[in-house]
Design a binder for these strands. Sequence first.
DNA 1: AAGTTATTTAACCATTTGGTTAATAAAATA
DNA 2: TATTTTATTAACCAAATGGTTAAATAACTT
Lengths: 204, 204
Amino acid sequence: MAIKKEKVSKELILEAARNVFIEKGFDGARMQQIADRAGANKALLHYYFSTKESLFEDVFKEAFSTFAPHFHDELLKVKSFKSFLVFFLDIYIKLLLNHPYLPLFILSELQRNPDKLAQIVKGIVDFELIQQMIKKEMDDGNVVKMDVRELIVNILSLCIFPFAGRPMMQRVLWKNDEVGYVNFLNQRAESIYKFLESTLFINN
Amino acid sequence: MAIKKEKVSKELILEAARNVFIEKGFDGARMQQIADRAGANKALLHYYFSTKESLFEDVFKEAFSTFAPHFHDELLKVKSFKSFLVFFLDIYIKLLLNHPYLPLFILSELQRNPDKLAQIVKGIVDFELIQQMIKKEMDDGNVVKMDVRELIVNILSLCIFPFAGRPMMQRVLWKNDEVGYVNFLNQRAESIYKFLESTLFINN
DNA sequence: AAGTTATTTAACCATTTGGTTAATAAAATA
DNA sequence: TATTTTATTAACCAAATGGTTAAATAACTT
C-alpha cells in the first residue's frame, strides 16, 4: 500500500506543533514528533521556523491569545455587570470546553519561563476596562463592594480550575467518571452564576 | 579556597531532586543538575535511586501527599461545616503559602502522565468523610443545598488557582507588583471565607 | 522550454542526557 | 587489625535530540 502523500506546509507544521507542545510542554515536545505528526521532514520545521524555541513562541503566543479573556465589543454592548457576567461565563466556559488543555499549558509554561514569555504576550490581555466597569457598579450599589481584582481572580478561579485541576478533581471527586465530569463542565457556566449570584448582587 | 566538602547522602539528593523537579518538571529536570545541587556525583543518584523515573516518583508521591488536603483528625473535632471551613482555609492556605509551586507541579505532571501517577498516589486523598459531613449539614438546613462535589471544587478553586495562576494573575491584575500579590495571598483565607459566607450559610 | 526561486528530503553532526562500570575511599564488623 | 560492606567517584557509553548541509524536486517566471 502506497503511503498517501499530502500537502505539507507551514500550517500543517504549526498545527502539529500546537498539538505536541500543548500536550507535552516545551521540554517534553520533540521536533521529530512534530515533524511526524505533520507528515514532514524534520528539516522542514527548521526551514519555516528556525529553532524549537521560535516555533514554540509562535504556538505559545497564539495559545495565549486564545486563552486570555477578551472583552472588547461585548463589554461595551452590555448594560450591567450582571448581564456581563452571564455573557462572559457563557463564552469563556465554551472556549475552555473547546480548549481544555490550554490553561495548564499556559500556566505551567509561564511559570517555567515567566519573563521571556510575559514579554512575548505583553499587551494581549487587558483588564482595565472591566475593572473600571465593575468599580462603577460597586459605587452605584449594584454589586457588593470588595477588591475588584480579587473578584476577578475569584471568577477566573471558578472558571479555569475545573479544567486545570481536572486530572486530580475527576479522580478524587468523580471517581474517574469521565462522562460525569464532562457533564459537570458542561453545566459550569450556569453553576458558577448560580453560585455567585447570592454573593454578589444587591437588589436582586 | 578549598571547596567545602559536606556530607552527601540520600536525603541531600532527595532534597535537591525535590527542588529541581518542582521547578522544572520531569522533562525539564536534569540528573546532572540534581547532582550538582546535592553536591554529589551523578552516579550516586543512580546508586540510591535507580532511575530518573524512580527518583521522580519518590518526589512526586511526597509532593502529592503534601498538596492533597488531609481531613482526618480536625474533621472529627469540628462541630459545623462553618467552623470546618474556617479551619480548613486557614491550614490549607498556610500550606500553599509554604509550598507555592506545588499546585502547578502536581497538576501538570498529573496531566502529562495521568494513569501512572494516579496509580502512585492512589489512596492518599479521600474526600468521602467531608462529602458526608457537608451533605448532612445541607440536610439539616445549615448549608445551602447544592451538589457537594461542586461545592468542594469551588472551594479548592478559590484556594489553589491564585497560586497556580500566579504567573498570569500577578502580571495582568497586579501589574507585576510582587509585594501586592503576596499581600493578597496572605489575606486569602479570610477573603475566601468572606466571599463564601453569604453564598453558603443559612441562619447566619 | 529555460532559468530562477521556493520547497522538501536523506544523510550527517555535535551535544546533551540518562545510565553504567570499575576502581577507590570510607565505615562497619569480625 | 584484617576483612567485608557501603558510599563515592572519574571515566565512559549508547541513544536521543536539536540542528545543518547539500542535493533533489516542485513551482513559478520569462
